[in-house]
């Protein structure tokens, strides 16, 4: 266990941003804190990073108290903050070199820049970089102390889809290097793609925690079979084994099932009756369905 959070509470004036949150993060995993804007993600991650003082509760990172052992801790963790920008007129290599002087032991920033595709940009001003490249600089800066844990706070927010996917590859690279990654995001697809475990929070409270498949299983969401057909008896469809319910929307039929058997059963029924159908598809519940089920509120959708 590299991060332990127990009964964390943080209030701002009369708002309780984080309300009695407890979880732990294992070494080497990508742990995702997921939730809508204002859910308390940033407050939680900043309490863990030692940038905010919790009102109550316990935070332990690599066995250290982030507030009391900040100097030792910051030599072992790498941090990317939401919305940090750098001075406009500073060059990539200059900020990297500056950060290299802040730690007791460091990795070569030149190698890191090469590793993250920024070496050709090392003489550019930060302000001239694209959004994705700026985030890559943030990752490189976080990696300079060769940290055990990397904290990423909404690192892909505001990036275009291609840049976002590039950042995902970088995060996967971190995991391959054996780092633990603690990240926040409000993109479902991102969490599903990257995170070993996901913690859903809303209004400062944990709503669900587990691996993607655990979360889907626990939410009891059903498999759907969707197809189009002209003439079909809904009552007969309902009687098929393993079918829970059927919805008809014009010529489109949505059949909800208890398990994967319904795919075979529905197909057998349709072919047996010689019913013509088209656009047959199987829809598995995904993280977004789980999320909607828990939070009852849509998340920001990737544009």
């Amino acid at each position: 266990m590299v991060i332990k959070v127990e009964n964390l509470v943080k209030r701002y004036k009369n708002i309780t941003a984080v309300n009695n949150v407890s979880f732990s993060v294992e070494e080497g995993e990508i742990f995702g804190l997921l939730g809508p804007n204002g859910a308390g993600k940033t407050t939680t991650i900043e309490c863990i990073e030692g940038l905010r003082k919790p009102d109550s509760g316990n935070v332990e990172v690599l066995g250290l108290n982030p507030l009391k052992d900040r100097k030792r801790l910051y030599n072992m963790i790498g941090v990317q903050l939401q919305e940090t920008s750098y001075q406009d007129k500073i060059k990539v290599w200059e900020i990297c070199q500056l950060f290299s002087t802040l730690y007791s032991k460091t990795l070569s920033y030149e190698l890191l820049l090469k590793d993250f595709g920024l070496y050709e940009k090392k003489d550019s001003y930060i302000s001239k970089l694209s959004g994705g490249q700026k985030q890559a600089v943030s990752i490189v800066l976080a990696l300079i102390p060769d940290p055990k844990i990397v904290f990423l706070d909404e690192i892909t927010t505001g990036l275009d889809p291609q840049a976002r996917r590039n950042v995902w590859e970088m995060i996967k690279k971190l995991k391959k290097k054996g780092k633990t990654v603690f990240m926040t995001t409000h993109y479902m697809e991102e969490a599903e793609n990257l995170c070993d475990r996901i913690c859903f929070i809303k209004s400062g409270k944990i709503r669900a925690l587990g691996t993607v498949s655990e979360l889907i299983k626990a939410s009891n969401l059903q498999l759907k079979v969707v197809f189009k057909a002209n003439d079909l008896n809904v009552d007969e469809l309902n009687k098929i084994e393993n079918v829970e319910s059927v919805k008809k929307d014009g010529e489109r039929y949505i059949v909800y099932g208890k398990n994967e058997e319904i795919v075979k059963d529905v197909m057998n029924y349709l072919t047996g009756k010689k019913i013509e159908f088209r656009e047959f598809s199987i829809v598995k519940p995904n993280l977004e369905d789980v999320y909607l089920n828990i939070v009852k509120e849509p998340l920001e959708v990737e544009k």
Binding site: Y74, Y86, Q87, L102, Y103
Partner: peptide, 13 residues
């Protein structure tokens, strides 16, 4: 404003 101070707070200095 650019959160540079905050970024440095998350370093050993």
């Amino acid at each position: 404003e650019k959160k540079i101070l905050k970024r440095f707070m998350a370093t050993p200095i």
